[in-house]
Design a protein around this nucleic acid. Structure first.
Lengths: 207, 207
DNA sequence: GTCTATACTGTGATAGAC
DNA sequence: GTCTATCACAGTATAGAC
C-alpha cells in the first residue's frame, strides 16, 4: 500500500496527493459533517478520482480520522500557552485573542470540530475525555490559583473556559449567521469581536 | 392527500402520527443534520413505516422544513421579550437566563438550528436575513439607546448579542464536550453556568 | 381515510480487473 | 494509476389491502 512508506519515505507525488485529498476532505467534512459527506464530493473538490483517493486512504473513515488527529494537535495549543508567568488578566485575554484568531484563520477546522461534537462526538470522544479534559483541568486549577491569590475575581474557571470557547468559535461556526445579521457591517467583524471580547473579559476578571 | 384537512380539521390519528413523526425527526435531524439523516432512521425512531411517513409528509425536505418553521417561532421569543420598560442590566441578564433555560429544556432544537447554520444555512438563510436580522437590529438599537443614556457601559450591541447566543447555546450544542470535561461535576452544570453568565454580564454591563 | 407491500431509481462505498 | 462491477441503501412512487 502506498502509505506504507519505503525506507526513502513518501515520494513527492504521494505527499502532494495526500495533502490535496485532505485539503478537499476538510472543506467537505467541515460543511456537511461525516455522514453528510461523500467521496464523490471529495473527488470533485480535489480533482482526484474516487478510486485514486482509495489508493491513498483506506476509506472515508480513515480520511476523517486523519483530519481529526491533525486538528487536535493544533486545537489545544492556544490553551497550552496560557501560563502562570505573566499577569493573569493579560494571560487570559491573550488566550481569547489567540482563540479568536484561530476562528478567523482556520474556520474549517473549527466547523469540522463543531460538526463532530454536535453529532455526539462518536469518533472523538476519547480525545475529549483524555487530552482535552486533562488540559482543561490543569488550566482550571491555574485559574483557581489566581482567584485564591486575589489576582482575578472569583468566577467558575470551567465555565469561564467554556465561555471563551463558545464566544470565539462562534465566529467560525456561525459565520453565515454573523455575516447575515451584520450585513454591510460584516467586514470588520473580527476586529470588532476582538475589541468586545477583550472588554468583556477584562471587566469580568479584573478585581 | 391526508394533510389537506377537511372542514372538520385533522383527525386524532392524523395529529398523533404527525407529531410522532416530527418528534422522531427532530431527534434524528438534530443529531445528524439534514444530509446525514435518513427516512429509515426516522421510521425506526418513530416506529412508523417509511411509506406511512410519506403518507403524512411529502418527503424528507418537507419534514425538515416543518421543524425549522416551528423552531423559529419559539427561537426568537426570548429576545423579543427584552424591552425598554425595566432596568437595562436586569433586562439583558433576564434574556441571558431565558436563553440558557432554552438550551437546557430544548437542546435538540438548538442542535437542529446549529446543524443548519453550521452547514451554511441553505434552507434557512431567508429567515436569518429577514426576521432574525430585523429583530437583532431592533434590539441592538435598544441597547445602543441604553449606552447613549449612560445606563450601561459602552460595548458593541451586536457582538454582545452574539456572545449571549454563543455562550448559552454552547450548553446545548456542545453538551457532550461540556459533560465530558466536567465529568463527575457535570450534574449542576446549568446552575453553575447561570451563575457564571450572570456575573460576567453584570460586570460587563454595569457602568 | 389509513396503512402496507413492493418496486423503481439514483447514489455511495468499495473491490477487483486492467 | 484508471475503469468498471458490485452491493447496499436511500428516497420516492404506486397498487391495493384494511
Amino acid at each position: 500500500m502506498a502509505r506504507a512508506a519505503s525506507t526513502k519515505g513518501p515520494t513527492r507525488i504521494q505527499r502532494e496527493k495526500t495533502e490535496a485529498i485532505l485539503e478537499a476532505a476538510l472543506e467537505v467534512f467541515a460543511t456537511y459533517g461525516f455522514r453528510g459527506s461523500t467521496l464523490d464530493q471529495i473527488a470533485a473538490q480535489s480533482g482526484i478520482s474516487k478510486p485514486n483517493i482509495l489508493y491513498y486512504f483506506d476509506g472515508k473513515e480513515t480520511i476523517h480520522a486523519e483530519l481529526l488527529a491533525r486538528l487536535l494537535e493544533t486545537w489545544l495549543e492556544p490553551l497550552e500557552h496560557m501560563s502562570d508567568k505573566g499577569d493573569p488578566v493579560e494571560e487570559i485575554c491573550a488566550y481569547v485573542a489567540r482563540k479568536l484568531a484561530m476562528s478567523r484563520d482556520y474556520p474549517r477546522q473549527s466547523r469540522l470540530f463543531a460538526n463532530e461534537v454536535l453529532q455526539g462526538a462518536p469518533r472523538i470522544l476519547d480525545e475529549l475525555a483524555g487530552p482535552l479534559k486533562a488540559l482543561t483541568d490543569e488550566k482550571a486549577a491555574l485559574i483557581q490559583g489566581w482567584i485564591d491569590a486575589g489576582l482575578i475575581k472569583a468566577i467558575d474557571p470551567y465555565h469561564l473556559i467554556f465561555s471563551i470557547w463558545s464566544t470565539t468559535q462562534h465566529y467560525a461556526d456561525f459565520d453565515v449567521q454573523v455575516r447575515t445579521v451584520l450585513a454591510d457591517k460584516a467586514d470588520d467583524r473580527f476586529k470588532k469581536a476582538a475589541a468586545f471580547l477583550d472588554t468583556m473579559y477584562r471587566a469580568t476578571l479584573t478585581p
